[in-house]
Design a protein around this nucleic acid. Structure first.
Length: 884
RNA sequence: GGGCGGGUAGUUCAGUGGGAGAACGUCUGCUUGACACGCAGAAGGUCGUAAGUUCAAUUCUUAUCCCGCCCA
């Protein structure tokens, strides 16, 4: 390959657009059941079908792609199932927005027409996110792509609903749910975000009916006064002893209601008396239920006061009503005092509107029986969280679980498969449409208008995507899947629900391992959000820096379970790394014109043995780290090997051999080692940076169809060569010492130095002699080696390395005082180290209790430090006289 | 109020019961036959604070302060 053929700056765009179609069209992502192979399977957390790729996706899918590609290369039957989610509220909101722009609404056009529009919307935008996934390099099996509302997934949803219904685990009841007045639907508890907000605590006087005094209640929501049907106190609260059961008169309304006793009340909070509004507060609902209290709905679905609130307040917005009520209470003499109070207020996670707890009739899943198994599975280790601490988060939620409200007052989604008979009120759950009532034979039936929570279908994802409820061979082979990779924000929403669903319907957990990663924050550590406008678009980053750089940046910033900040400096670093690799490869390729891989013709040099040993260590480390899900660390290890060992040392040492300064055999050996190590390293790096590694790999001799299908480098222990590593370290140390002296003494890089190396021990001398060429080349110095210098040069800079002393004669260039100062500085550092080591070795406790190998190590250290100290002291006294 | 995570170089972050690391930034010097998205060298840290366990603590325990997240 001639130099002109390869640009000196890597251009990801030219490369990345080419390889993805090659892989996809080549069928390299597709895999089928093969009993000869071990399966490895990941199901992709499905992104919103009409959404766009954000940084969180980019991280999540990068991690999954790394695992999938790695296992595939390892010979596993590696399947990554892609798919998208219908995202009920989000998608419906988009379509409604569009309708609003056209001056109409879903109510005006009707359900059927609306669904047509929603499907059209899905068709229009449904491929955007999958196209973006392709740009990221995701190696998922697109032939198995699924959608939560496709035929199969919908069947799974109906099947699960019916089965739970028949087992009595799905029921319909009046209950307090979280109503979003803007989205016009109920949402589940975990879809409510509690935001701490400054508010007030109003103290109100509720008089007794008999005119004999009053009780004081405190509330943060005075508008709910209108719906009060009792006041509760703790049964043991002495302040209210004897008053329980007495009737009160509700201010402004005049309703009579009792003072009741309930354990729920915290006597130490506020006045110890709590007003009870069963229709607008979940806790009050429970209390009201226990005491058979009336439930009065005073706020409607728009967030406005209802007719029940009375003519004075009806139609007012709940917050306007609050102001008016406070004024009225004050005027009536009922308001005792107002305190400032910061408290958590529930907001809709979709639209950020304040949630109204509201009594309504909804469908629920009874969670207790399902949760039990899910708790057991985690405790028994059938499903393992990484990092382990997330097990606790999961368990605490599962153990305190409440029933799951699954009906949504939306149109876009899986319609609840339940019909009501208008004649006899029978409720019929059925997989197929029902036209006749099985109880009374009536034909006037109506399907429940609501749809199911989006997470209801996502909960089935690990098995619905593999064909369930059909008993497919895929299901038998790939389930339970190997690992779930997802963000810590959806442990409750999704992970937990998949686990109990899998246990309930597949009799096994959906995945053995849950690998949790953090959130991608902006450079200032804030969540990326639309409202802040601080999001970074992954596609923009791919355009400017390439998908490989984005992936590498994300994975190296990631440590298991922790958040990471997106910063552009790190992204530049990743791009620079890609460029470094590109140029190292370019160098190798430029020197391979005459190279035909074949029989080894020459002897391995020390540098060859060293880099091969380091490479085998690399393969071992990367594999080990991937196995323990430390993907970021694996990437960092690769970075360091490529940059600091392969490029900085090995390539530099190979140069003279390639430029014909040695023998043709040696040139050939250098070519073959360069090629082999580069090729193996590319293979190890491929899961992390798929595009650039494929591009380079394809230029190397001995390539195959694709690096995707190359076999994962196996760490061959026989390639480890500790002796070569030790020797190279010695030579590197001497090289660095000379470079250091050159820099400190301001000797220009172009000027060749002389260096005398004194090594009393034959073994060290031997290493130096054989490595002379290395040092001379890398330090630009002429070397002479001595067992003992007869006459130590006076005008010379000095350094001590492991096994040798270095003298660099600098006649006329050296300032003796300056050199002495430098040596004194080094001596000071040495003495500090020595003091610490000696402190240990003089400590009886240490000698008697520390492990032998640690003591041995300290002794060795002491020896070496003392040796260096002596050498530097001698040198100093020689330079400036014997008074040092 | 309960739980969890973080507090390490100017910045962003790794890491570890036994010699404090990287990247970026800074300083010095370099068109060294792959790379200035580069090369060589350097400076820079009481590892939040206090106590305890230990022969030994940045690492383990406890308390405490600050920041963030989750739950009630």
């Amino acid at each position: 390959m001639a130099k002109a053929d390869i640009p000196s700056t890597y251009d990801p765009r030219a490369v990345e657009d080419r390889w993805y179609p090659y892989w996809e069209n080549g069928g390299f992502f597709h895999i089928g059941v093969n009993p000869e192979q071990k399966p490895f399977c990941i199901v992709m957390p499905p992104p919103n079908v009409t959404g766009q790729l954000h940084m969180g996706h980019a991280l999540d899918y990068t991690l999954q792609d790394i695992l999938t590609r790695w296992r595939r290369m390892q010979g596993y039957n590696s399947l990554w199932v892609p798919g998208t989610d219908h995202a009920g509220i989000a998608t419906q909101a988009k379509v409604e927005e569009q309708l609003a722009k056209e001056g109409t609404s879903r109510y005006e056009i009707g359900r059927e027409a609306f669904l047509k529009r929603a499907w059209a919307w899905k068709e229009q935008y449904g491929s955007r996110i999958t196209a973006q996934l392709r740009r990221l390099g995701a190696s998922c099996d697109w032939q198995r792509e699924r959608f939560t509302m496709d035929e199969g997934c919908s069947e799974a949803v109906r099947e699960v609903f019916i089965r739970l219904f028949e087992r009595g685990l799905i029921y319909r009841d009046y209950y307090i749910t979280n109503w979003c007045p803007k989205c016009h639907t109920t949402i589940s508890d975990i879809e409510v975000e509690h935001i701490e907000k400054p508010g007030h605590f109003w103290y109100l006087k509720y008089p007794f009916k008999d005119g004999d005094g009053h009780v004081v209640v405190a509330t943060t929501r005075p508008e709910t006064v209108l719906g009060d049907t009792a006041v509760a106190v703790h049964p043991d609260d002495e302040r209210y002893a004897g008053l329980i059961g007495k009737m009160l008169v509700l201010p402004l309304v005049g309703r009579e209601m009792p003072l009741i006793a309930d354990e729920y009340v915290d006597p130490s909070f506020g006045t110890g008396a709590v007003k009870i509004t069963p229709a607008h507060d979940p806790n009050d609902f429970e209390v009201g239920y226990r005491h058979g209290l009336e439930q009065i709905i005073v706020i409607d679905k728009e967030g406005k006061m209802s007719a029940e609130a009375g003519p004075r307040y009806q139609g007012l917005d709940r917050y306007d009503c609050r102001k008016k009520i406070v004024r009225d209470l004050e005027a009536g003499g009922y308001l005792l005092k107002t305190e400032d109070l910061s408290h958590g207020v529930g907001h809709c996670y979709r639209c950020n509107t304040v949630i109204e707890p509201m009594l309504s009739r909804q469908w629920f899943v009874k969670m207790k029986p399902l949760a039990e198994q899910a708790i057991e599975a985690a405790k028994a280790g059938d499903v393992r969280f990484i990092p382990e601490r997330f097990t606790k988060v999961y368990l605490s939620w599962m153990e305190n679980i409440r029933d799951w409200c699954i009906s949504r007052q939306l149109w876009w989604g899986h319609r609840i498969p339940v019909w009501y008979c208008k004649d006899c009120d029978e409720t019929i759950a059925s997989k197929k449409p029902v036209s006749q009532c099985p109880k009374c034979g009536g034909t006037d039936l109506e399907q429940d208008p609501d749809v199911l929570d989006t997470w209801f279908s996502s909960a089935l994802w690990p098995f619905s995507t593999l064909g369930w409820p059909k008993q497919t061979i895929e299901l038998a082979y790939y389930y339970p899947t190997s690992v779930l990779v997802t963000g810590r924000d959806i442990i409750f929403f999704w992970v937990a629900r998949m686990i109990f669903s899998g246990l309930a319907f597949m009799n096994d957990v959906p995945f053995r391992v849950v690998s949790i990663h953090g959130m991608v924050l902006d450079a200032l550590g804030r969540k990326m959000s639309k409202s802040l406008g601080n999001g970074v678009d992954p596609i923009d980053v791919i355009e400017s820096h390439g998908a490989d750089s984005l992936r590498f940046m994300l994975v190296t910033s990631n440590t298991p379970g922790n958040d990471l900040r997106f910063n552009f400096e790190k992204l530049d670093g990743a791009r620079n790394f890609a460029n470094k690799l590109w140029n190292a490869s370019r160098f190798v390729l430029m020197n391979l014109e005459d190279f035909e891989p074949g029989e080894q013709r020459g002897q391995y040099t020390l540098a060859d043995r060293w880099i091969i040993s380091r490479y085998q260590n690399l393969a071992e480390e990367v594999t080990r780290l991937l196995e323990s899900y430390e993907l970021g660390e694996a990437a960092r290890v690769l970075y360091e090997f490529i940059w600091n060992e392969f490029c900085d040392w090995y390539i530099e040492l190979a140069k003279p051999r390639l430029y014909g300064k040695t023998t043709p055999q040696d040139r050939y050996t250098a070519q073959s080692v360069l090629t082999a190590v580069l090729k193996g390293t590319l293979e190890l790096l491929h899961p992390f940076m798929p595009f650039i590694t494929e591009e380079i790999w394809q230029h190397l001799p001995g390539k195959g169809l694709t690096v995707m299908r190359a076999s994962w480098p196996v760490a061959g222990k026989e390639l480890a060569d500790p002796e070569a590593e030790r020797q190279m370290e010695m030579l590197m140390e001497v090289t660095k010492a000379i470079r250091h002296i050159r820099s400190e003494m301001n000797v220009p890089p172009g000027k060749q130095l002389e260096a005398y190396l004194e090594a009393p021990q034959a073994a060290f001398r031997d290493v130096l002699e054989r490595g002379t060429g290395y040092i001379q080349g890398l330090a630009n110095a002429k070397i002479a080696i001595f067992e003992a210098l007869k006459e130590k040069p006076e005008q010379a800079a000095h350094a001590v390395t492991h096994g040798a002393e270095v003298f660099v004669p600098l006649k006329g260039l050296i300032d003796i005082e300056q050199e002495a100062a430098r040596l004194r500085k080094e001596l000071a550092v040495l003495e500090k180290d020595l003091a610490r080591v000696n402190g240990k070795l003089n400590n009886q406790g240490f000698l008697s209790k520390a492990p032998a190998d640690v003591i041995e190590k300290e002794k060795k250290k002491e020896n070496e430090l003392t040796g260096k100290q002596t050498a530097i002291r001698e040198r100093l006294s020689m330079l400036v006289g014997g008074n040092e």
